[in-house]
Every structure is written in structure tokens, then in C-alpha cells.
């Protein structure tokens, strides 16, 4: 029997779910491997009582999200997160850098109260255990298919742990640090094929901190290239501002 799958969105831009529909050539093959029970974005129907795999997109920003995640964890044998918002809190966690009352007033003013039950945006694994993750903003479709295949086969999670500089070198990209520009490749989790540097843009850290990164050495590298080492942290906040909250 094909594993029963639900796809759930928390606070997000839906970009990673859109990326899932963007696997046009393989969409039917992937759908053939699973029993897709619930996907609000693509189909009518209700969330079922039972399922085997929960795929979660988005950051946790409300009390409802916390309760939903606990329900998913209790029911599903496997929880898989897709995208930076679910993985690190992503861009949305930048809101943590602003006083919540000031942020609320800036958007909604003094009218009727809306957006109730809010909490500081954070990643899914701050609430429940996550078995498989597809990092990145947005997710890479090949990596998604890979991780989903591993989950379906019950293979161990193999999220890369190295920073992305090594793979960037194999693409023969000219190093941004050597050009005097801030790039976060030294500390960011690899697995994206160094897409941005290959398109002549520095890494912005969307895949989160590489567990094997050497932060001290990265700061020293910045200094040796004449770059402000505090920029490393400041820029890294872009997709990773929740790291202070969860640690």
C-alpha cells in the first residue's frame, strides 16, 4: 500500500509548494509512489484522521501552528520539512528583530484587532522532531525528490553538513571574498550546487548554518580579505534570525 501523505502549509509564501508543482516532468511519477490524501493548494478535500507522512512548509508563527504540528507528529510516522521557513524560520524570523507591538502597529494601526494568537516566528523543529528536511529558499526540486525517495524507502536522513565553498570551487566560480564582496558560502549548508555564486551572486545563507562550518575561521577569512567580520552575522540573519531564539 502506498504511504498516505498530507502536505501542510504554515506561515509561508507557498513558494516551496509551488516548487513541488514545478516538477512537471516527474509529477505523475512522484504522485504514483504516494497516496496523496491532502493538499489544500491543489485539491478539494479535508485533512484525514490518519496518514503516514506529513510534509510541512512554512514557519511556526501562531499557537494554532503549534497545535497542528503536535497533531501531525502524533499521527505521522515521518515528518518532513520543506524550505527555509520550516527549517530555520527563514526570512519570516526577521520579524523577531522588531518589537512585536511596533511591528503590529506599523501594519494594522489602531483598528480592530486581527492576527490573534501570534508568536515569534521559528522553525518546525523548535516544536516537534523532524525526520527529513529539504533546506533552501526555495527548495530545489531534485533535492526534494531525492529526500522524498529516502523517506519512502526508510533510508537515513542525509542532509549535507558541509559548507558550500567546496562545491562552488568545483564550478570554477571566482571567489566573492577575493573580489572584496561579502559571501556566506563559508558557513552555509551545501546541497544547492552553489547556484547563486554560479549565477554571479554571493551566497545569502538561505540553507542555514552548516553543522561542520568553522565560524571562527570564517570570521578570520573575512578580516584577511579586508571585510567587516560583523557583516557575517548581520547578513546571515536574513534567513536565520531565529537561531538566537531557538538556542
Amino acid at each position: 500500500m502506498a504511504p498516505r501523505v498530507v502536505i501542510v502549509g504554515l506561515a509561508s509564501d507557498f513558494g516551496c509548494q509551488v516548487q513541488m508543482t514545478n516538477i512537471e516532468d516527474d509529477l505523475l511519477d512522484v504522485l504514483g509512489l504516494i497516496d496523496l490524501q491532502y493538499w489544500q493548494l491543489a485539491s478539494s478535500g479535508h485533512m484525514p484522521e490518519e496518514y503516514d507522512i506529513a510534509i510541512v512548509e512554512g514557519a511556526v508563527t501562531t499557537q494554532e501552528h503549534v497545535e497542528l504540528l503536535k497533531r501531525l507528529r502524533k499521527t505521522a510516522a515521518v515528518v518532513m520539512t520543506i524550505g527555509s521557513c520550516a527549517d530555520t524560520g527563514g526570512i519570516l524570523a526577521l520579524a523577531n528583530c522588531v518589537d512585536p507591538d511596533v511591528a503590529y502597529a506599523a501594519v494594522y494601526g489602531k483598528g480592530p484587532e486581527v492576527a490573534r494568537g501570534r508568536r515569534a516566528p521559528g522553525p518546525v523543529d523548535a516544536v516537534i522532531h523532524v525526520d527529513y528536511r529539504v533546506p533552501g529558499c526555495p527548495i530545489d526540486t531534485d533535492e526534494f525528490i531525492n529526500v522524498l525517495s529516502r523517506a519512502l524507502q526508510g533510508l537515513a536522513d542525509r542532509t549535507p553538513v558541509d559548507p558550500l565553498c567546496a562545491i562552488c570551487k568545483t564550478k570554477e566560480n571566482v571567489c566573492f571574498l577575493d573580489r572584496g564582496e561579502v559571501c556566506l558560502g563559508l558557513v552555509t549548508r551545501t546541497g544547492c550546487g552553489a547556484k547563486c555564486p554560479t549565477l554571479n551572486r554571493p551566497c545569502t545563507g538561505c540553507r542555514g548554518l552548516a553543522p561542520d562550518a568553522n565560524l571562527e575561521a570564517a570570521r578570520a577569512a573575512f578580516v584577511s580579505k579586508g571585510l567587516d567580520p560583523t557583516e557575517l552575522e548581520r547578513r546571515f540573519d536574513l534567513y536565520n534570525a531565529a537561531r538566537e531564539v531557538t538556542r
Binding site: D13, L92, V98, A115, C137, T204
Partner: peptide, 25 residues
């Protein structure tokens, strides 16, 4: 859920803004 993009971009550098606001959708 509310995400607060407008207050979020305050204090970020001009060259980061399109990266942030792209994530509205």
C-alpha cells in the same frame, strides 16, 4: 498568518530588500 514584511525591512540594507520582499509570494 500575518508576517510583517513592512516592519521587517526597516534597518536592512537597500541591496537586501528585493530578496526579502520577493518572499512575500
Amino acid at each position: 498568518p500575518a508576517r510583517f514584511f513592512e516592519p521587517m525591512i526597516v534597518g536592512r540594507r537597500f541591496d537586501e530588500i528585493s530578496l526579502i520582499t520577493s518572499r512575500i509570494c
